[in-house]
């Protein structure tokens, strides 16, 4: 079997006795774009921080292209590029200077061609000589992505790379990530934009409360939900889902005004509507659509994902 690009093996982390990551295991093959999703506090960033070396590992192991990231950390750090979720910058330097310097930390000579490519593709050109604290949040994030890639890592980890980045740049950013991936870089990403994860990732792991609750190809995850999704707009909000509707696997959203149901292949929207009116519920509107990642997410984590 091919050595995984990233092999997370029974990884555990606790803070003051409460477990943030509970013995999770997963392997990412070289060349994948892999999504790690979950609600806030699910343990995604803690996991990424243990992989990148920012957080100490309590138990378990992380292997990057076969190298243990604790014993062979000098090798694994060179193989990995990571962009953390928290914006961190060094106010003393300009983007240009900081990028040149960052390659040096990895033992590399500045490669102007590569640096220029990152600057262009991430739209940093006009801001090269500004000091960091004068940059907008979105720009800081793009700079952090460039910094994560400056040493041409084999494994690129992007923790919420598009938060605060405007829509046009988000598209060009994902296009660039795809291109990098096609050139052979394995990508692990987290995002709050589930649509983006759906489009970008071949496989997805969903974390909740420190555990991996689902791990499959994006297509299989969507297929698990079966047929179509129905969104029922209620005239009066519900506080609890009526048990009579259990067959439709309902989830309440939007303060009880929205009821999300799933239809099997044999179900029809008309049958659902009849059941709802039979229960005395007033339906304002009803919409059917194919399942998306948000449905999977909601069912597995029971939490509302604050996508935009």
């Amino acid at each position: 079997m091919q050595t995984p690009a990233l092999d997370i093996d029974h990884l555990c982390k606790s803070y003051d006795g409460s477990a943030a990551v509970k013995e999770i295991s997963l392997a990412i093959a070289p060349g994948e774009i892999f999504g790690l999703l979950g609600p806030n506090g699910a343990g995604k960033s803690t996991t990424i921080n243990m992989v990148s070396g920012v957080t100490r590992i309590d138990n378990g192991a992380v292997r990057i292209f076969g190298h243990d990231n604790q014993t062979d950390y000098r090798i694994t750090r060179c193989l990995t590029g990571v962009m953390h979720q928290e914006i961190v910058i060094d106010n003393f330097f300009t983007i240009d200077k900081a990028l040149k310097m960052h390659a040096g930390y990895y033992g590399l000579r500045d490669d102007p061609t590569w640096r220029q490519l990152l600057i262009e593709r991430l739209g940093l050109g006009p801001h090269l000589h500004k000091v960091m604290f004068k940059l907008s949040g979105g720009l800081k994030r793009r700079f952090m992505i460039a910094k994560a890639m400056i040493h041409k890592p084999r494994l690129l980890i992007l923790d919420e790379p598009t938060a605060g980045v405007d829509i046009e740049l988000r598209h060009s950013l994902w296009e660039f990530v795809r291109e990098i991936n096609q050139r052979g870089t394995t990508v692990l990403l987290t995002t709050h934009y589930l649509e983006e994860a759906e489009q970008m990732c071949g496989r997805i792991a969903i974390m909740n409360q420190g555990e991996v609750v689902a791990l499959d190809s994006t297509r299989n995850l969507l297929r698990q939900l079966g047929g179509r999704q129905v969104e029922v707009n209620l005239a009066q909000p519900l506080t609890a889902v009526p048990t009579e509707l259990a067959h439709f696997r309902p989830v309440l959203a939007d303060d009880g005004n929205l009821l999300r149901c799933a239809l099997d292949e044999t179900d029809t929207a008309i049958a659902l509507l009849a059941r709802l009116t039979g229960l005395g519920l007033k339906v304002r509107d009803l919409e059917t659509r194919p399942p998306n990642l948000e449905d999977v997410f909601l069912r597995l984590t029971g939490s509302h994902h604050h996508g935009h």
């Binding site: 060179c78 961190v88 960052h102 930390y105």
Partner: peptide, 12 residues
């Protein structure tokens, strides 16, 4: 400022 992570992720 948190930028110590810039060093922690490198082979230094």
């Amino acid at each position: 400022l948190g930028n110590i992570v810039d060093l922690l992720v490198t082979p230094i």
